[in-house]
Amino acid sequence: MRVVVNGQARELGNDATVASVVESVYGDHDGRGVAAALDGEVVPRGLWEWTGLSEGARVEIVVAVQGG
């Protein structure tokens, strides 16, 4: 299926979850300082593995950066 991750189109398997997308973007990350939103709604870290994606889903994954 086709989804948009951080503004870029990606082709993913039908079993893709928020967790698998985060891993594909960040590699083996401990998740600290990382957060994810699916279609404009925040997905709590504990639900990443259980939150499947559907065709056309828009995922935003953000990390801590300098600012403010």
Partner: peptide, 27 residues
């Protein structure tokens, strides 16, 4: 203070490591 952004692939190290080492709270 810290901000949230999409990952910049060229960035190295996490700012959180710096702040944790300094023992400061994150806003």
């Amino acid at each position: 203070t810290v901000a949230l952004r999409r990952l910049d692939p060229s960035s190295r190290g996490s700012i959180l490591d710096v702040l944790e080492a300094a023992g400061v709270e994150v806003l």
